[in-house]
Amino acid sequence: MKRRRQEPIKISSTLMLTPMLDMLTVVLIFLIVNFSPEKAAIKPSANIQLPEAELNLNEVPRIHIELAKDHVMLNGQTLAGLLPDSQDSQAWNILKIKLEELTKESKDQKPQPILLIADKDAPYQFVDSAVAHLAAGGYSEVYLLTSQEDK
């Protein structure tokens, strides 16, 4: 009696891409929905720990001022010779000049809202001085940047 030769079983070796694609689609949609270019532009310095608050940042101003112990930054650029606790009004002139330049560049040429960034342990004096000089320059809309805490 002759034995039948076993035929080799054909195994399909196609990679199943559909589940992977499903997963990637979900991840992509989630990322696109949560993507905010304005918020991505906010980059506080590494040594700054933001204060916590429950309110959401609905409007993201384009002008960012960072107040740290050793520097004042305007849109990521350090303003040479200006410290947040400076009592000398002349020292704050550099901020005023730079802000005027930004106002001229803006569409409506009106003072824009300002986003203030400061460390949670910083003295309030930093914010007080900055807001006083901003108010003197006609900038009356100020947002204080916080990290959002869970309600």
Binding site: K39, L50, E141, Y143, L145, S147
Partner: peptide, 13 residues
């Protein structure tokens, strides 16, 4: 994308 969720308090000068 921003991993920290930013919040903000609006005040007026």
């Amino acid at each position: 994308s921003v991993l920290v969720s930013f919040g903000g308090v609006y005040v007026e000068a």
